[in-house]
C-alpha cells in the first residue's frame, strides 16, 4: 500500500501521457480532452467550494464568459488564439471580481442563489445580446487552438495541451493550498468568525478566491470553445452549473484531486453508459444519489481531521 501510495501520482501521469498513444480512437481521445477541460473547470470550483466554502451555483457563467470571449475575439476580431485565451482568463476573472465584491456579503444559501441567478442572467445576455454574441445562432467556425504557428488541430495535440494546463493548474493549486493564503482560506472555511477575530480580512480573501476561481473557469471555457469549434448559449445553462458542483462533491471537494476525479467520472460515465440508451440519464441520477451514500465526503475525502493552524513551511502570517 505504501509503495502504491508513493508511486500513485507518477503512475497516473505516465498513464495519462500514454493515453492518446495507446488509445488511437479519436472518440475516446475526445472524452480524454473533455475530461481534462472539465477537470480544470471543476478544480476552479473546488477551490471555491472546498477551500473557502463558497458554494457557487452559477459557475457555468464564468465558463461561458471565457468561452465566448475567446471565441468572439478569434472569429470576429481575428485575434490569434493566445490573445483570446489570455483575455478570456482576465475578463472572466474580472467579471468574477466585480460580481463578488458586492455579493460576497451574502451568506450560505443566499449566496448560492445569487450565483445561480447570476448564471441565469449571464445566459440570457449570451442569448439576447445579438450584436455581440450572435444570439441563439451561437458562434460557429472557431479556429483550433494554436501556440504561435503550431496548430493544435488533432485530438492528440489538444489532449497534451489541456493535460499540461491541468497539471500546471494542479501544481499551482497544491502550492496555493499549502501556502499561508491557502491556510487562511481553510481557516475561513472552518470558522470564519475565528478568522476575523485573528485579524483576517475575510472578505478580501473570499474575493481573491472568487476572482481566481472565475478566471480559471474562463480558461477552461476558452479551451472548450476552441475544441468544440462551435459554441452556443445552450451549453452554459443552470443545469451545467449543478453538474460542475456534482463533479466537485462526488470527487471530493476538500481534496486537490477530488474535483479532477469527479470531472473524469461524470464526463466519462455518461459516455460509457451510451449503450443503455433511454436509461442513461436515469442511471446517472441514481449514481449521484448513491455515490454519496458510500462516501459522504466524496470519493477522495482529504479533509483534515483537525485544522493545522501551524503552517509547515515556516511561513508566517
Amino acid at each position: 500500500m505504501n509503495a502504491l501510495r508513493k508511486y500513485a501520482l507518477p503512475l497516473l501521469v505516465v498513464l495519462a501521457l500514454l493515453f492518446p498513444l495507446v488509445v488511437t480512437n479519436a472518440y475516446y481521445q475526445r472524452i480524454g480532452v473533455m475530461s481534462c477541460i472539465f477537470a480544470i473547470v471543476a478544480s476552479s470550483l473546488g477551490l471555491l467550494v472546498g477551500q473557502v466554502k463558497l458554494v457557487s451555483a452559477g459557475h457555468a457563467a464564468f465558463f461561458g464568459i471565457g468561452a465566448y470571449t475567446s471565441a468572439l475575439l478569434t472569429t470576429k476580431a481575428g485575434m490569434p488564439f493566445l490573445v483570446g485565451f489570455a483575455v478570456a482568463i482576465v475578463l472572466s476573472g474580472l467579471v468574477g471580481f466585480l460580481f463578488s465584491v458586492p455579493v460576497l456579503r451574502l451568506k450560505g444559501h443566499y449566496l448560492s442563489m445569487a450565483t445561480l441567478a447570476f448564471g441565469i442572467v449571464a445566459q440570457m445576455v449570451m442569448l439576447n445580446w445579438e450584436g455581440l454574441t450572435n444570439g441563439p445562432n451561437g458562434v460557429p467556425g472557431i479556429p483550433f487552438a494554436s501556440l504561435f504557428a503550431f496548430e493544435l488541430n488533432t485530438d492528440v495535440r489538444m489532449f497534451y495541451f489541456t493535460f499540461a494546463l491541468l497539471a500546471l493548474l494542479l501544481w499551482g493549486l497544491s502550492r496555493l493550498y499549502r501556502s499561508p493564503v491557502g491556510l487562511t482560506f481553510q481557516l475561513i472555511r472552518e470558522d470564519a468568525v475565528a478568522a476575523a477575530t485573528l485579524g483576517v480580512n475575510v472578505t478580501r480573501y473570499k474575493v481573491t478566491a472568487f476572482t481566481l476561481s472565475a478566471g480559471i473557469a474562463g480558461l477552461g471555457g476558452s479551451l472548450f470553445a476552441h475544441y468544440m469549434a462551435y459554441i452556443n448559449y445552450d451549453t452554459f445553462y443552470p443545469l451545467e452549473s449543478f453538474m460542475l458542483l456534482a463533479m466537485v462533491v462526488v470527487g471530493g471537494m476538500y481534496s486537490l484531486f477530488g474535483p479532477v476525479l469527479g470531472a473524469v467520472l461524470l464526463t466519462a460515465v455518461p459516455e460509457l453508459l451510451r449503450g443503455l440508451a433511454d436509461y442513461r440519464m436515469l442511471i446517472y441520477g441514481v449514481v449521484l444519489v448513491s455515490v454519496l451514500l458510500l462516501r459522504p465526503q466524496g470519493i477522495l475525502s482529504g479533509r483534515p481531521k483537525h485544522l493545522e493552524l501551524r503552517p509547515k513551511e515556516g511561513a508566517k502570517r
Binding site: 500500500m1 502504491l4 501510495r5 500513485a8 497516473l12 481534496s255 484531486f257 477522495l300 475525502s301
Partner: peptide, 15 residues
C-alpha cells in the same frame, strides 16, 4: 493530503 494519496492510487487503478 494522506487520505487523498491513498485514493489517488485507487484513482490510478480505475483510470
Amino acid at each position: 493530503m494522506r487520505g487523498s494519496k491513498r485514493w489517488g492510487a485507487v484513482l490510478a487503478a480505475v483510470l
